[in-house]
Design a protein around this nucleic acid. Structure first.
Length: 161
DNA sequence: GCCAACGTTGGC
DNA sequence: GCCAACGTTGGC
């Protein structure tokens, strides 16, 4: 069999006070650390693959918005912050032999010229159904459909990377 | 800062 | 394994 893997699409949330799209412009590539929710962990460990595309979303921010895109360059690996007792993300119940928390490496594709706000997403046919708009959608790693990915780029008025 | 919606913890 | 209490997320 060819084994061709479908490219997948995601939305990753980050509070810009912690790590913003501008930090990713500076770094170009970063390990997506600090996810401490089991459902999101399972995505990062098992499902997110190199080549997948990611909408970078700023939460608890002004504005809360999709601010750019990146691509996954390395699939799930243990998140080193869980092993560091001085790190806020330390988890005493996790060991390098049996790590509990995972992340992926991403590389910047682009920062949008302007943030795509929740109002814009709500008011556009192709994006109105996105998980991130649903009440109580706290998941920090969310699947996105290819149609949603493309529709966000329509709003951003830029060709998908 | 409020608070609804979740997720986790721990006593039983 | 139930479920109340508690903690967190995150838009507003």
């Amino acid at each position: 069999m060819s084994g061709k893997v479908e490219r997948q699409f995601w939305l990753f949330k980050s509070e810009p006070d912690e790590y913003s799209i501008d930090d990713l412009i500076r770094d170009q590539t970063t390990f997506w650390f600090g996810v401490r929710n089991y459902q999101a962990r399972n995505f990062l460990r098992d499902t997110v693959k190199a080549g997948d595309r990611v909408l970078f979303y700023h939460s608890s921010a002004e504005p809360t918005a999709v601010v750019g895109t990146c691509r996954v360059t390395e699939a799930g690996a243990p998140d080193a912050t869980q092993f560091d007792p001085k790190n806020p993300y330390f988890d005493a119940k996790s060991t390098p032999e049996n790590p509990r928390w995972f992340g992926v490496r991403v590389r910047l594709i682009r920062k949008f010229a302007a943030p795509i706000t929740r109002d814009q997403l709500r008011n556009h046919n192709g994006t109105a159904g996105m998980m991130v708009l649903r009440k109580g959608a706290r998941l920090s790693i969310q699947p996105v459909t290819e149609a949603e990915w493309l529709a966000v780029h329509v709003l951003a008025d830029v060709k998908p990377g």
